[in-house]
């Protein structure tokens, strides 16, 4: 049996039993709503492109905030010892935390569907394919950031430090796309491939290319794997 589901359920229940998840979700939704609706009538376009532009930026704060405690708090309170002496694999622990983070991110995204409703009411000729791709991209992006957040959280027993580390990694991945002009042209292609914005904008344009999917999935696998290694280092310290 795989126990990651049990851990995910426990974490999700923990999120919604405490006020923190609600505060973070409300902040996430308010920020998105503000930046989405204020230019909506100026642009006069019945699409969610502004939303797909703003969510990745809000993610930079939102995702570190929801992942910062996932492992750091266990280390801080000592419950990590409880968890890791139960008959659980380290990978099950990390995956459980990961699914919980995805669950909360998906909940946040679910509420943004309200904006879709707005444009359905207001506009015509809505490109649903593009919207579905956009949401897929947001979910994948959230998963990448979530795995980074879990990795950062696994490095420390201090939630704030966890937040700062994941904020920095995510921020660097995000701004990479804006620094390309500084690079010698021979390197641009390489760094463009590394930058998360490049792959994300491809998906939100409505094109699902395996190269982009491979990029996202390999980042997720990389950071989850690093988290497992980080969790295992306790044994050898």
């Amino acid at each position: 049996m795989n126990f990651s589901g049990l851990i995910a359920r426990k974490e999700l229940k923990g999120y919604f039993d405490s006020p923190s998840a609600y505060i973070i979700l409300v902040a996430f939704l308010l920020l998105n709503a503000w930046f989405f609706t204020s230019p909506l009538f100026i642009n006069n376009q019945a699409d969610l492109r502004t939303l797909f532009g703003i969510v990745p930026i809000v993610y930079i704060f939102f995702i570190p905030a929801i992942t910062m405690g996932l492992l750091a708090r266990e280390r801080n309170t000592g419950t990590i010892e409880l968890l890791t002496t139960l008959p659980l694999k380290d990978s099950e622990i990390i995956m459980g935390k990961f699914w919980a983070a995805i669950g909360l991110i998906a909940t946040g995204l679910l509420f943004t569907l309200f904006h879709l409703l707005t444009i359905i009411v207001l506009g015509t000729n809505i490109d649903y394919g593009q919207i579905i791709c956009g949401y897929l991209g947001l979910l994948l992006l959230g998963a990448v950031y979530g795995s980074i957040g879990i990795f950062a959280s696994s490095l420390t027993d201090n939630q704030i430090v966890g937040f700062i580390i994941s904020f920095f990694i995510i921020f660097i991945l995000y701004i990479l796309q804006f620094t390309l002009y500084l690079l010698p042209s021979s390197l641009v292609g390489f760094f463009q491939y590394l930058s998360i914005g490049y792959h994300f904008s491809n998906i939100t344009r409505g094109v699902i290319d395996t190269r982009n999917i491979v990029y996202f999935v390999s980042l997720i696998v990389l950071f989850l794997h690093l988290s497992i290694i980080s969790l295992q280092t306790r044994k050898w310290k």
Binding site: G14, D17, T77, G78, I80, E81, L82, T85
Partner: peptide, 17 residues
């Protein structure tokens, strides 16, 4: 781990549960 029941030092618990 399946054979052992363990109460760690300082009794860590998920106190919010």
């Amino acid at each position: 781990r399946k054979l052992i029941g363990y109460l760690p030092e300082n009794n860590p618990l998920y106190i919010e549960m």
